[in-house]
Design a protein around this nucleic acid. Structure first.
Length: 702
RNA sequence: GGACUCGUAGCUCAACGGUAGAGCGCUUCGUUUACAUCGAAGAUGUUAGAGGUUCAAAUCCUCUCGAGUCCACCA
């Protein structure tokens, strides 16, 4: 054995040994209890970031339960990550002075498909570098034909049961990226804006002053609204204002929605470009066509058509000021809804989209959580989950991008009022009129719509036997940041399609932060590349750094110091093995049992027993960090620092019995450590047990 | 505006009702024979502040100050 543990020498070899030996493969086995985890599918197109290394928790569970004799399946997969990937691809196009508009749908799709296929292998190999015991023979991609078919069946079932409906509503639309988003994909940004006070002349005489942050939309106004209780405006309700510059006449209406204390107490109502106004206008039966188009330019204004929103605002303000309609502007802090990807301001625009009626789904999901059918670890997230479920609103699943699973909805164009039908297989004929050449919806599904089905969809594609045996899965382990976007939706969709919760347990891990506890971001330049860390310190060290001495579920600050500490630990483990191994070859065999030595050995075994008991207790309670800390403390500061030191001379003198009993304790600790640090433990194991055996073939004796 | 989390040793964090711990850093000492990626010994904290409950509080309660996260949102 080398005097140092050098991870780079053994990691690749050991991983392919495990893989080819089939230790990661899972099959239905009625004599065993299954233990199933579906890996949250990383973006097929992107490199892993250090956050993905947190899936170590999953490997810990998988390897632990392998050693406990369960039939463990950890199923890998990747996500097409619709909008994310298209966004990256468009950046790549831009570098070549191209854009998505240079290609037709089919070509663009094909190009992105190839782009993704090219990059897909990277992520898989990076997961291997981390040592993850994934069953690669069952790997799935969210755009595999069989997966898409299941996603289609889900959509059809929802459509047939009235859980999917099409509606024209305001959506959060990014005019730069050309797509709408669900409410969960919107990033609020606080900005210093202005509140403009604009004078609207009243036809019947007088004037009313409105306050607005979006003056350019007044050309699309349908009313001015005041609070019915507001004495200042009692007399003007029912009268009409003439919109400045464009001379259109709109009513003054009353609605208790208006806050009298804010601004001037008079609000302009622009149904096509404001969520609240949309609702109010509908209540009052008022409409006006949108004055902002999907290209982000003004339209239907007769005055600033073709201008982008901000220039139009400037232009209109200039003209209003010249004519004396603009009274003043006051600084105003406001929240701007922005695109989570490109950061541009989102435009509320009216658009027909598919929505999922979430109420019935939420009710079921809530029941599962309340009845304890789904346990959440750490416990504090149970409350979060409940609150999340309570606050869900209907889910817009239409995206105006090509990279995604195209929605299998078809429109009959023969009828006056086009009717939609949904079909899993692409129909040859219109299912409504039977004759016309129907038109398929241009849109694709929100990526979360397919990933929300991931646990049951993946297992179903493996065949009935696998599905029956491994579903529902045992644990869903993921970051707390996607509790809402993913976990909650998986519960909703999983139950809808299978009548069961998709998993019995949810375990949530924290975010990886930099050494100062700061969020990692490209702009801060503090992003840590997990593969570089593995190259430098070894996979075991990285894995250990993420779990050691942390509160499960809380954020982890990752630093080189931590990694060095864990790397030293792996080396320590290695060298304990080295010592025991070196002591093996002794020519003289002593077997002296003094009272003193006996006592030390008894003490050691007693401690070891109590350690094991605690270890299994922690593991059962999902207190993984504590389990690791326990073994760390024992093997280093008790086993090595105390017992090896005390028994060193005895072993050197060739006391085989002492050596053997030391080894037994050491081996048990290797097993306990293996889920956390698979490489070093396996490497040492093989030194003692032979090159062709694996620590994974053993089981815990409890 | 609502909710939640967190302010503990120089740094990053554990402990969550019973004498304040770890990793890294620091001081002193130690090595021919597992490991200097090591060992031994040690220093460093009125646990943000104020009040309360308790025999006992970093831990429970209230308030103040500070950091952060999520949700909702007034034009």
């Amino acid at each position: 054995m080398d005097s140092k543990f050098i991870p780079s020498l053994i990691e690749a070899e050991l991983y392919s040994f495990w893989e080819t030996k089939g230790y990661f493969k899972a099959e239905p086995n009625t004599t065993k209890t299954p233990f199933t985890i579906i890996l949250p599918p990383p973006n097929a197109n992107a490199d892993l970031h250090v956050g993905h290394a947190m899936y170590t928790y999953e490997d810990v569970m998988i390897r632990y339960y392998k050693l406990k004799g369960r039939e463990t399946l950890w199923l890998p997969g990747s996500d097409h990550a619709g909008f994310e990937t298209q966004f990256v691809f468009e950046k790549y196009l831009k570098k070549q002075d191209k854009s998505r508009f240079d290609y037709d749908r089919e070509t663009l799709f094909k190009m992105i498909w190839d782009f993704v296929q090219e990059n897909k292998g990277t992520m898989q190999n990076q997961l291997r570098r981390l040592g993850f015991a994934l069953d690669w023979s069952k790997e799935k991609f969210t755009m595999d034909d069989d997966i898409v078919k299941i996603v289609y069946s889900t959509f059809k079932k929802m459509f047939d049961e009235g859980l999917v409906y099409r509606a024209e509503r305001l959506v959060n639309y990014c005019t730069r990226d050309g797509t709408s988003f669900s409410d969960l994909e919107v990033v609020d940004q606080e900005v210093e804006g202005w509140l403009y006070h604009i004078r609207f002349p009243i036809k019947e005489g007088g004037e009313v002053v409105v306050a607005t942050t979006r003056p350019e939309t007044y050309v699309g106004d349908v009313a001015v609204m005041v609070n019915p209780k507001d004495p200042r405006y009692k007399s003007v309700v029912g009268k009409h204002v003439i919109l400045p510059l464009i001379h259109r006449e709109i009513p003054i209406i009353a609605d208790s929605y208006v806050d009298m204390k804010f601004g001037t107490g008079a609000v302009k109502v622009t149904p096509a470009h404001d969520f609240n106004d949309f609702e109010i206008a509908r209540k009052h039966n008022l409409t006006h066509p949108p004055v902002i188009g999907f290209n982000g330019r003004m339209q239907n204004t007769g005055i600033v058509d073709g201008l982008k929103v901000l220039p139009a605002r400037e232009e209109l303000l200039k003209q209003l000021e010249e004519k004396g309609f603009l009274i003043k502007k006051v600084p105003h802090k406001m929240v701007l809804k922005t695109c989570y990807k490109c950061g541009s301001a989102l435009e509320p625009l009216p658009l027909e989209q598919w929505y999922i009626k979430v109420k019935p789904l939420i009710d079921q999901a809530m029941k599962l959580v309340q009845e304890g059918k789904i346990q959440v670890y750490p416990k504090k997230y149970t409350l979060h989950l409940r609150r999340i479920l309570k606050n869900f609103i209907d889910w817009n699943i239409s995206r105006q991008i090509v990279w995604g699973i195209r929605i299998p909805a078809y429109k009959c164009v023969a009828e006056d009022t086009p009717r939609w039908f949904v079909s899993v297989e692409k129909p040859k004929k219109c299912q409504v009129c039977g004759t016309c050449t129907f038109v398929q919806d241009q849109d694709t599904f929100d990526t979360w719509f397919s990933s929300a089905q991931w646990p049951f969809a993946t297992l179903q594609t493996l065949g009935q036997a696998y599905y029956d045996y491994f579903y529902p899965t045992t644990v869903m382990e993921t970051g707390y940041d996607i509790l809402r976007a993913w976990v909650a939706r998986m519960i909703m969709m999983g139950y809808f399609m299978t009548g069961k919760a998709p998993f019995h347990n949810v375990f949530l891990h924290g975010m990886v932060r930099d050494k100062h506890g700061q969020k990692m971001s490209k702009s801060k330049g503090n992003v840590v590349n997990p593969i570089e860390m593995i190259d430098t310190y070894g996979a075991d060290a990285l894995r250990g750094s993420l779990l050691f001495e942390v509160k499960d579920g809380s954020d982890v600050s990752l630093s080189d110091d931590r990694l060095i500490g864990m790397r030293n630990f792996t080396n320590k483990i290695w060298n304990m093995g080295r010592f025991l191994d070196m002591s093996n070859v002794k020519t003289e065999m002593l077997n002296v049992k003094t009272k003193e030595i006996k006592k030390i050995l008894t003490q050691l075994e007693k401690e070891s027993q109590s350690e094991m008991k605690k270890y299994h207790k922690y593991m059962k309670e999902y207190k993984f960090s504590k389990a690791l800390g326990l073994v760390y403390e024992f093997i280093w500061h008790r086993f090595a620092d105390v017992y090896i030191e005390r028994l060193k001379d005895e072993i050197r003198n060739g006391n085989i019995e002492v050596l053997d009993r030391m080894k037994e304790v050491y081996f048990e600790n290797l097993k306990m450590l293996h889920p956390f640090m698979p490489f070093v433990t396996e490497a040492v194991w093989q030194v003692f047990k032979g090159k062709n055996v694996s620590i994974l073939e053993t089981e815990f004796v409890e």
